[in-house]
């Protein structure tokens, strides 16, 4: 459904994308996971026919993003990171505007947006500029869907959104997926990777890994230990001081620890931390999460 082949793009002296290749299958929910500056937005803008690549080709539903841009624009829905809405039009007017631009009407495709739009319909006379963040997000999604696109592209739809709204938003995406829409979504939140069918982990214009999330963590073979004590900051400093430790980072209430040599046991780590007088120690071996893998990949990439 989406095919990207060796795409590169530079802005002056900044290489935003370096020979990126991947494919998204029809009906797939595909995630681009990475921090600011990874190249997620640039890649999406190229796929949306809003930006020309320096090198490489990309096709959406078999249509070339440079040559066939007019056809592509009819079959994709795009929710950019900064809101695309007209602040001085009302909720209803924004939706009607997007429908008209695509030569359709709100009534024609109402079924597709019903679940989402109903949540903001009580405020349909309100100006978009006066909506709260979560409501704007729902309106922008409705506007991106009103012409019944085959492919939906969402650029960081959940950035700066609270945990509850984020969960609701992902529930909406899952529902849209069941209606046959192919979805490409980007996010800086590692925990959202697990909600995608497949993800591309991106950093500084490169793809570090593409796989289903469960595969990404399964491929990580290094020993990983988790430790906690009553003093997190001192714990991390003590861990980093020990020459058997490669990395130590806070992960919620635990510090995740990668030893330099494989096979360092929880018992050995605990014995070391006891010599540093840590209280209420808990140390055990754990399976990695996406964030652990991502951090290891970043470090590996920079070396």
């Amino acid at each position: 459904m989406i095919r990207v082949n060796n795409i590169s793009k530079s802005y002056k002296d900044v290489q935003a994308l370096q020979r990126i290749s991947f494919e998204v299958q029809e009906g797939e929910l595909f995630g681009l996971i990475g921090p600011d500056g990874a190249g997620k937005t640039t890649l999406m803008r190229i796929l949306m026919t809003l930006l020309l690549p320096d090198e490489g080709q990309a096709a959406m539903h078999g249509l070339d993003v440079v040559r066939d841009y007019k056809e592509i624009r009819q079959l994709v829905g795009y929710m950019p990171g900064r809101f695309s809405l007209y602040q001085d039009l009302s909720v209803e007017e924004n939706l009607a505007f997007f429908a008209t631009v695509f030569g359709t009407s709100i009534e024609e495709n109402y079924a597709l947006i019903k679940d989402i739009y109903q949540q903001i319909e009580p405020f349909k006379k309100r100006l978009a500029g006066k909506l709260s963040g979560g409501m704007k997000q729902k309106l922008a999604l409705s506007c991106a869907l009103i012409h019944k696109p085959k492919i939906l592209v969402l650029d960081e739809p959940t950035t700066g959104v609270d945990a509850v709204s984020r969960k609701e938003f992902w529930d909406m995406l899952k529902k849209l997926q069941t209606q046959g829409i192919t979805i490409l979504v980007s996010t800086p939140y590692m925990d959202e990777a697990g909600l995608c069918d497949r993800v591309a982990l991106m950093q500084k214009g490169e793809i570090l890994r593409i796989d289903p999330p469960e595969q990404i963590v399964a491929n990580y073979t290094r020993t990983l230990l988790a430790a906690r004590s009553t003093e997190m900051h001192r714990l991390i400093l003590d861990l980093r001081e020990w020459d058997s430790i490669d990395t130590a980072y806070a992960f919620g209430q635990f510090a995740h620890v990668t030893p330099k040599k494989e096979g360092l046991t929880a018992y050995e780590l605990e014995r070391y931390l006891k010599t540093k007088n840590h209280q209420q120690l808990q140390v055990h071996q754990i399976a990695p999460g996406i964030e652990d893998v991502f951090m290891a990949l970043i470090v590996g990439n920079e070396e």
Binding site: T159, E291, M295, I298
Partner: peptide
């Protein structure tokens, strides 16, 4: 919200 958008290592 001091840490939005950065990679997980920079955030830590």
């Amino acid at each position: 919200e001091p840490t939005g958008g950065v990679d997980p290592i920079t955030r830590r």
